[in-house]
Design a binder for these strands. Structure first.
Length: 680
DNA sequence: CGGGGTACTTTTTTT
DNA sequence: AAGTACCCCG
């Protein structure tokens, strides 16, 4: 296969390892790509190269983990090969699974099976909450912990009835929930994120005709961030590429940071064995960061065992020393970082878009936001729960979901009394009792409220009014209709504007809330313009699968980025601040002291990889900070430096201590001075 | 039914 | 310290 060694135009300007990966012909290929080693470049060039060699775009599948990554990859490919880039399938595992599910289920009688909604974590929890009431459990369980176990079983293809015997409480409870949960999803015509991968994979494995359709279609499969695949995703890849074995996976075991949601680093460590014989290429030359940053990164990650041995090899100059700055407390830390950034911008050493502040957990963002605002520094927040978590937005989306799928009782319950129209828990209970007794979905009870409730019931007209609203909205939102106009009609129908106005004391709160509504309208309008065949169903699926990146693209370059370490993966900035370098934050408290409901004990090496990911985001300047004291549950506490920095040789970091001595010493000093004065 | 008050706990990361 | 869940009263 290596015989036809065309010096394609897509291998120019690549280093020898990159070129080897791009030129590799058929058969399994593992690309171990260190941070900043040109990984995305290799994938896009490889796709272009395949097309150059006559593979048609429709025959290529490239899977990523975020929609954003897929979008960027597509754009890069488009710049290289032009319009034919459109034919290539580039998407997330979940989007691929959704497409497969819709197409396969749509084959049935009039495509009824394809009429499902996608439940996000919030919906899943709401569903479990409902079940918890029915299952008569002795105490209140942490439903997130239950969900984590159910999710783990699903991804291991464990059926509801076959959960393994376990001695821990939560596994036993989850084993009771699991069958009920799965039945509930079925009844609600809903699928969760896990189903989007697990169900298509099961179809591929069990139905040869289905496998033929999909595996036969994609002659080449490429996977980005392979270290983040979970068991179900690996099985999906096996089903798709097991025959022709044209599977190219790219990743970095040192950047595996999603173990907590079922990803297994093992997959990338064992790929050579799983898909032997297999070509392996290691990309170690780093084009991103100055040498001092890479020295630090190498030293941090070297403390991890069980990894593909590799180092980041610098190609740039040494650069400035990496600083570790110690501040008095959390507020002082945020203030210091904000001042530094303000100075950088004022002296025009950087554009805002070239600067990022990274942290382990979202709650550290708050203080930073406050201080950056005080310094008038424009910023954007990556990843934090935001737009789609706003109440008004969720309520409106729930209305839309009910219109699309009236069987979605979770959404129905959410909006049946929103805005408040006098339908309380008692009425909802009567409706759902009737539904259960007659083995009907909840919406049937709503539809026939006249028969279900007594004639004199105060709530009856309210329920009928509610159903009228849903009916009108459903008619307005039919496929092919003006969706944004339909939503606008719904907003007016339920008097949402007055509701938002009345329920918010301050003008500012009202502004913010109403902005959520208008943003959603605008989003739907934009979707209507851009989608090929706009439909409510498709819009809702996109909304749930979209990564929470609510920025308007054009402004991004003009803002400083605040992001979690997870959210920063794959990105880079000239100047990076990592805050909260403390025991209990990085590594996180919960990996150090797992709580009873946690599934497995925390993985310290994953925390270290998280640290490594953060460090390797910096191109030119890197500053680490920590606070000597920090408020925890309202009380100030002394904080120890993160082991990830204290275990390193001193010469890698320039330590600057700006923390005042502890207050006791202060007091003693004062006392001493007073004594001196008295004595003198 | 809905508003307002009190008591309790606390989110690590996201498709 | 702040947000949530639950309870009681109008």
């Amino acid at each position: 296969m290596a015989a036809q060694r065309k010096t394609g135009k897509w291998t120019q300007g690549l280093n020898p390892e990159q070129r080897a990966a791009v030129e590799h012909g058929e058969g399994p290929l593992l690309v171990l790509a260190g941070a900043g080693s040109g990984k995305t470049r290799v994938i896009t060039h490889r796709v272009a190269q395949l097309m150059e060699r006559g593979v048609r775009g429709e025959q290529i599948l490239a899977v990523t983990f975020t929609n954003k990554a897929a979008g960027e990859m597509r754009e890069r490919l488009r710049r290289m090969v032009g319009a034919p880039a459109r034919a290539v399938t580039m998407c997330t595992f979940h989007a691929l699974g959704l497409a497969m599910l819709r197409e396969e289920l749509g084959r049935g009688r009039r495509g009824k099976g394809a009429r499902f909604v996608i439940y996000d974590t919030g919906d899943q929890l709401a569903c479990l909450r409902g079940l918890a009431g029915r299952l008569r459990l002795r105490r209140n369980y942490d439903l997130e912990a239950v969900l984590a176990r159910i999710s783990a079983w699903k991804n291991a293809f464990v059926e509801p009835g076959e959960t393994p015997e376990a001695d821990d409480d939560y596994s036993q409870v989850a084993a009771i929930f699991y069958p009920a949960y799965q039945e509930a999803l079925q009844a609600l015509a809903a699928v969760d994120f896990d189903d989007l991968v697990v169900r298509p994979t099961r179809m591929l494995e069990r139905e040869p005709a289905c496998r033929e359709r999909w595996a036969g279609r994609f002659r080449h499969v490429l996977v980005d961030e392979y270290q983040d695949t979970n068991g179900a995703q690996l099985r999906m890849l096996r089903a798709l590429a097991g025959q022709h074995r044209n599977l190219c996976v790219v990743g970095d075991d040192d950047q595996a940071i999603y173990g907590w949601r079922g990803a297994e680093v093992r997959h990338i460590l064992e790929f050579e064995r799983d898909f032997a014989p297999c070509k392996v290429v290691a990309l170690e030359r780093n084009y991103r960061s100055v040498a001092r940053v890479l020295d630090l990164a190498n030293a941090v990650i070297a403390q991890n065992a069980a990894r593909h041995a590799k180092r980041l090899v610098p190609t740039r100059e040494a650069g400035a020393a990496v600083r570790l700055v110690v501040l008095e407390d959390g507020d002082a830390e945020a203030a210091w970082v904000a001042e530094q950034i303000e100075a950088l911008l004022r002296e025009r050493r950087h554009h805002p878009g070239q600067v990022a502040v990274l942290y382990r957990s979202n709650r550290l963002a708050q203080a930073l936001e406050t201080q950056l605002r005080a310094q008038h520094v424009p910023y954007r927040l990556l990843g934090g729960r935001s737009f789609f978590d706003r109440k008004e937005v969720k309520d409106l989306l729930a209305y839309l979901r009910v219109c699309q799928n009236p069987a979605d009782a979770i959404s129905l319950r959410r909006v049946i009394n929103f805005p408040p129209r006098g339908i309380g828990p008692a009425t909802v209970a009567r409706l759902s009792d009737w539904a259960e007794a007659h083995e009907q979905p909840l919406f049937k009870a709503v539809e026939r409220a006249g028969e279900v409730l007594e004639a004199g019931d105060r709530a009856l007209p309210a329920v009928q009014a509610f159903w009228g609203v849903v009916g009108r909205a459903t008619r307005r939102l039919r496929d092919g209709a003006d969706l944004a106009g339909g939503l606008q009609g719904l907003v007016e129908d339920i008097g949402l504007h007055d509701e938002v106005l009345d329920s918010n004391q301050s003008g500012a709160a009202y502004e913010r809330r109403w902005a959520g509504v208008t943003d959603l309208l605008e989003g739907l309008r934009a979707y209507g313009r851009q989608a090929e065949r706009p439909s409510l169903r498709d819009f809702l699926a996109q909304v749930t699968l979209a990564d929470r990146d609510q920025d308007k693209e054009e402004e991004q370059g003009e803002r400083v980025t605040l992001s979690t370490l997870h959210g920063a993966k794959g990105l880079e900035w000239a100047c990076v601040f990592m805050v909260g370098m403390e025991e209990g934050i990085l590594p996180h408290e919960r990996t150090l002291n797992p709580s009873a409901s946690d599934m497995e004990s925390g993985d310290l090496s994953e925390e270290r990889r998280l640290c490594y990911v953060g460090i390797t985001r910096a191109r030119d300047e890197l500053t680490l900070t920590r606070a000597a004291r920090r408020l925890l549950h309202g009380k100030p506490r002394e904080r120890a430096p993160s082991r990830f920095v204290s275990e390193l040789p001193a010469e890698l970091l320039e330590v600057v201590d700006r923390a005042a001595p502890p207050p006791e010493a202060d007091v003693r000093e004062h006392l001493r001075k007073i004594k001196e004065l008295l004595g003198g």
